[in-house]
Nucleic acid binder design. Sequence first.
RNA 1: GCCACUGUAGCUCAGUCUGGCAGAGCGGCUGAUUCGUAAUCAGCAGGUCGGGGGUUCAAGUCCCUCCAGUGGCUCCA
Length: 639
Amino acid sequence: MAAPGTVRLVLPDGSLREVPSGTPAGEVLRAWNPGAAGKFLAASLDGRPIDLAAPVRTAGRLAGLAFSDPKGREVLQHSAAHLVAKSLLEVVPDALPTVGPPTEEGFYYDFEVRPLTPEDLTKLAERAAAIIAARERFERVEVPRDEALRLVAGNPHKQGYIEEVPAGEAVSFYRTGAFVDLCRGPHVPDTGWLAGLHVLGFSAITAGGTPGGAPRQRVRGIAFPSRAELEAYLKQREEAEARDHRALGPRLGLFMFVDEAPGFPFWLPKGMIVVRELERFVIEHFRDDGYHEVRTPLMFAQSVFETSGHWTHYRENIFQTEADGRIYGVKPMNCPGSMLIFRSTSRSYRELPLRLAEFAPLHRLERSGTLHGLTRVREMVQDDAHLFVTEEQIEGELRKLLAWIQRAFTVFRLEWSYELSTRPESYLGEVAQWDRAEATLEKVLRESGVAYRVSPGEGAFYGPKIDIHIRDSLGRPWQTGTIQLDYQIPARFGLEYQGADGALHPPIVIHRTILGTWERFLGVLLEHCAGRLPPWLSPVQLRIVPVTERHEPAARARLERFAAAGIRADLSTSTDTLSKRIREAELDKVPYIGVLGDREMTDGTVALRVHGQKGSRTLATEELVRELGEKIRTRSFEP
RNA sequence: GCCACUGUAGCUCAGUCUGGCAGAGCGGCUGAUUCGUAAUCAGCAGGUCGGGGGUUCAAGUCCCUCCAGUGGCUCCA
């Protein structure tokens, strides 16, 4: 038992400390570990973050929170959000602060305010710098509810948040100089901790999730405990921006866009090679796993989409045209076509699972402001398939799909994550069936041992799904693959098969795409490898560089040899210096460069330089044919 | 679709604030150089300054509008 008026605290190293009740957490930590205490920007008591200045009145496990700790990082981001709010109010006094939470990367603060301008932001940054230099303290104040409501008079947003605080619980505010903000805390001790603050930008946000609300602006930022850490972050960000597929793609001759076709990619000759290689990769798997490729119309009369439910749930995204007095929709997905094929004849359970794959161009009228290079387009091709299965076959098919995902993404050395999306507000069918479908998906995920997140309400209107996400160079997540379990659309199309029992049953359909669309997948892949595609995907796998013009005929002969071996090789024929042509090959991200001069001509060899590596090694032409052939055949990621 | 910003040669960008002859580097073409692993030298060509409208003696520059792009929001593969 602790002595009266004292509390007993367990420190992270297991040591025990008994201090007078009300001792500030920071003081206890400083006494415990003076060396580390300078890094602590907050503390935690039994895992609950508290201010360093918070008086400790209950026993428990006390620890310091540093920036390296995710919770510590959040404290810093959230404190930075307060600083931004305080600064903005000094620039635009009638702005109404709403919320300012930390995010995965940094933080944001939303305001009800007139549209901001870059000048506002400049002034904001100046004010913030001054406040940081002033090292203003973050002071916690706890007040009764009625006083709290008085404090935020004039700000309906904050009043609303106070209403949400459970009755009986004190309402806390944090004071920074003259600025007071409703806040649960905790915060860093003072604004001097925010020296590594960086305002990333601002934008309008759609208030309350629906267009047409009060004008709101979001200021986004990120904070580090020091300038140096901020500088490192900015440098890394700059490098990531240099990998942007929207710049890399056209420069490498892969794809392009024109103003007259926003969101509709042009695949250039080199890009088409990459797409075909990707297709080949997927088609090999289709063959192995019993898929049949089909091709169905790009357009259907409106009634087909009414049957599928898309006319009700997706119409604003469907391109429409009109012929013979009927409205046609350009298909945004392949499922209706596959449904019609299934329905075209009577089906037996012996045919199931029936796996129909289709790589048709899909068109989706995405809103103009959402387009983004290849990762968000209006015309796309998916590695799409629809599996018509019996109830008993679902799990087996799902397991096979998870295995294929594992294999496919590993080939590209991409990191991916799973998300289970459940019944949305607007849905077809019965709740019980949805619950069963969701349970099945979750069971297979759990049994496969992979980590996954659950996104409630994010499912498709016809069924729950497992989505796969990968991230671009700036860390923005993009959904690629998706596995959707659908009891609805087959029934709406009146699909049935005759079971072993002689009765007719509706099949269940698994909609699945793994790489997603060639467009998005390649966009992210290009950023992932900074344009340096693995050899099997490279449009030019080997560039032969003759040392002088004299060596060109010999180089051409070698070229033919490589071409005959199925290696995509080209020739560097310009009269530029050797160094310059090597440089060009490197900039073109050609994985292998073969130099050919007098020495190589005499002994039938090639001097091989691998992209990104200095120096070369000489090997016999046939040896090179074998070596490159092997790298390509095995789809090695590294050259 | 919403808010802000951006749009000048194939690319990257000066010039726009303060209206007065459209510029550079890279790339391209031509010629010289024939070279051993990331930029040889010289010359030349290339632009209705995103489109349209307006103000003005005069517009790349100021105003309006449309289009496209960028960063977010919303939505989604």
